[in-house]
Design a protein around this nucleic acid. Structure first.
Length: 115
RNA sequence: UAAGUAAGACAGACAAUCGCGGCUGCAUAUGCCGAAAGGCCGCAGGCGAGGAAAGUCCGGGCUUCACAGGGCAGGAUGCCGGAUAACGUCCGGUAGAGGUGACUCUAAGGAAAGUGCAACAGAAAUAAACCGCAUGUGCAUACACAUGUAAGGGUGGAAAGGCAGUGUAAGAGACUACCGCCUCGCUGGUAACAGAGAGGGCACAUGUAAACCCCAUCCGAAGCAAGACCGGAUAAAAGCAAUGUGGCUGCCCGUCACGCUUUAGGUAGGUCGCUUGAGCCCGACGGUGACGUCAGGCCUAGAUAGAUGAUUGUCCAACGACAUAACCCGGCUCAUCGUCUUGCUUAACAU
């Protein structure tokens, strides 16, 4: 991804959970925190409660794909964590994408204007 | 054709666009890092999850640790023979059970080594006389008592071999035939076992070993987060320098920061382990078969927070189940939308 890296360390996740702001909708929870690097780092978390390995992988791919296609509209310099809620188990790509954009707007880091 | 039975194959297909992870090649002219080699980035090509990748239930390889030899404890397995690296797996048999049949199922050693348990019912549960049958006595059918008796009744999962006859007061392996059981050798078979025969007259007498237990065989422990190598930081030792070096600052004062090298040690991190293997495909030969031998061909994911997805179009049996490699193999078990192929069985019809 052009402007982004993935969030890897458990330590980083803990910091964002503790210090970041969060908004949620039916399918997702989004934690956001400034990281002062000029790049975004995104982490995706899917609990075992949501489903088995196949389901969880599929959901992370949907989120990563949504984020990739919308990447240029997100402001840089943030750590993002997307947590998938149990309700998102059988969601389609379109629904996932709109859920992500909705949360981006709530955090005021999604700045596409032509929609 | 239908129903069944056994074995096997596939696991939506194709195209376009965007995207991801290794590999190979090209570029390193430009951008970033580096002393350089090169790496990142870039371009092109090719490769990229499953039949169960799952559960982690067995077995093995591999790694580290332990280990003179023996025993106990503990665990696993349990008809016989074979296959295999090994197995609790597989193959072929035997015995028993089920099915008209193809075929399927079986935790299938020992209950005369010992201990334990057997509810309720029933007279009695490892030990026998409740009813009954018969004889005797009470004058005497009824009735009562005594004795004999396990054929019949009833209870139970199980009641002292079964069934028929002889016999008897009534009965009883008391005796006899057949069957079963036990013992003995014989024949066939590597064996489990089978067959025919002789003898015993039937016990220590039921069941339970997925109760303890006995017998035979096998088992050292932990696991790739195994383990090997490189290695900032921090603390340690030795040597060297001890009025030293650097910044503010060109010099002095002042002030701030810091010893240097080597050796072990091994944290963060990195590299290897990591995919060429009891490998896959095809053929020949040996074997009833599991499988083995030989010849030819092939290289087929290797991530490290973890790569296969999205959109659109066409087609179908029409919205496609279950389910994601994580060191690697051999199995087992459980989950699963469906589609197809082959052998065999039964029934009906036709010839």
């Amino acid at each position: 991804m052009k402007f982004s890296e993935s969030l890897k360390k458990n330590k980083d996740f803990q910091i964002v959970y503790r210090q970041g702001k969060s908004y949620a909708n039916k399918y997702l929870v989004l934690y956001v925190m400034k990281n002062n690097t000029g790049k975004n780092r995104i982490g995706i978390s899917v609990s075992k409660k949501v489903g088995n390995s196949v389901v969880r992988h599929h959901l992370t791919r949907l989120i990563r794909e949504s984020y990739r296609l919308q990447e240029e509209y997100f402001q840089c310099g943030y750590d993002l964590i997307v947590v998938v809620r149990v309700g998102a188990k059988e969601v389609t790509y379109k629904e996932m994408e709109s859920a992500l954009i909705h949360l981006g707007k709530l955090h005021k880091i999604y700045k596409r204007t032509d929609l």
